[in-house]
């Protein structure tokens, strides 16, 4: 096409030769050790007021919660991160990776994108079998397809540890229940994307085994950002970003007292989950011992 030369989007769709040229690779043929930090450069809220921070640096290994009432802009904040906002979203925020404007190729080539976002969606619109979907995704997130079968197997195994209703490779994506959808999204982000930065939007509302999810996720060293209403996740984080009216209103570092509270909250949470499960299975609740918890 005569006029294509005039559109200069270097690297767009270009997974070809340049992919492995200068990125440090781990054994999967997959770069990730390069990301050390992601930064949010403050923008403004719905009310036009500035975010309470000029710049917030999140470092490798940090676990961060984003909290605030419904409609306060939590999803919008993590969408800004996933889109590598550059003053071009309604919030005016900017995202830096390792202190610099991220290269275009992060947006344009999924195999180089260091961010995986687990959205709030509870259903898929993709009219593909689970098998084809996961294989295609593994093929584009990883440069080598040699390992695709193994990745798909691990992903399904991970997902099935989170949902009580096992997913089969032949089911159609659109048939999956809310819990199956969310389990698959978490597993896909963790195993197939396996990115250094993971954003999770209200995983607790998903009808999944939350304790198991946290346990499995904790096995990975990444920057985790949880949008959450869950006290257990919030207390487990290093920071809480507080949203109000679309604005970052505050950033709190989890203090020693809050940390000391976390194990008790976790035990409460387990007891409640257990009761919830029993009720769901049609069992009676008898002789429950709360003494140990409170």
């Amino acid at each position: 096409m005569a006029n294509q030369a005039s559109i200069d989007w270097s690297g767009v769709n270009g997974r070809g030769g340049q992919l492995s040229a200068n990125s440090p690779l781990d054994q999967g043929g997959h770069q990730q050790s390069v990301i050390r930090q992601v930064s949010i450069i403050g923008g403004k809220g719905r009310d036009g007021l500035h975010d309470a921070i000029d710049r917030l640096d999140l470092n490798m290994g940090d676990v961060v919660s984003v909290v605030g009432p419904t409609g306060s802009g939590k999803t919008t904040l993590i969408n800004d991160m996933e889109l590598f906002a550059d003053g071009d979203t309604p919030t005016g925020r900017r995202i830096l990776i390792n202190g610099e404007t991220p290269p275009e190729v992060f947006r344009d080539d999924p195999s180089r994108n260091p961010i995986a976002l687990i959205t709030q969606h509870t259903s898929f619109l993709s009219d593909l079998p689970v098998d084809v979907f996961l294989h295609t995704h593994a093929g584009i997130r990883r440069s080598s397809s040699r390992e695709a079968d193994e990745l798909v197997r691990q992903t399904l195994d991970f997902a099935n540890q989170l949902t009580g209703e096992p997913i089969s490779l032949s089911s159609s994506m659109t048939e999956l229940s809310g819990g199956q959808t969310r389990s698959l999204l978490i597993a896909d982000a963790t195993i197939i994307c396996d990115t250094p930065i993971v954003l999770l939007d209200e995983v607790e509302n998903a009808g999944i085994n939350r304790s198991r999810a946290l346990e499995l996720l904790r096995g990975y060293k990444k920057i985790f950002i949880f949008v959450t209403h869950d006290p257990r996740i919030a207390l487990l984080s290093d920071y809480r970003i507080i949203l109000r009216d679309g604005r970052i209103a505050d950033v709190l570092k989890t203090d020693a007292r809050e940390r000391a509270l976390a194990p008790t909250v976790a035990r409460f949470d387990d007891v409640l989950s257990d009761i919830r499960d029993r009720l769901r299975q049609g069992l009676r609740i008898e002789n429950f011992d709360f003494g140990d918890v409170a």
């Binding site: 769709n13 999924p110 976002l117 687990i118 619109l125 993709s126 295609t136 995704h137 584009i140």
Partner: peptide, 22 residues
């Protein structure tokens, strides 16, 4: 749609029309 679906949709476009920018 989810990020995963976006990425698979992009791959489907690239497969049907490799020279088109997305």
């Amino acid at each position: 749609v989810s990020q995963a679906e976006r990425e698979v949709f992009r791959a489907r476009i690239m497969e049907a029309a490799p020279q088109v920018r997305i």
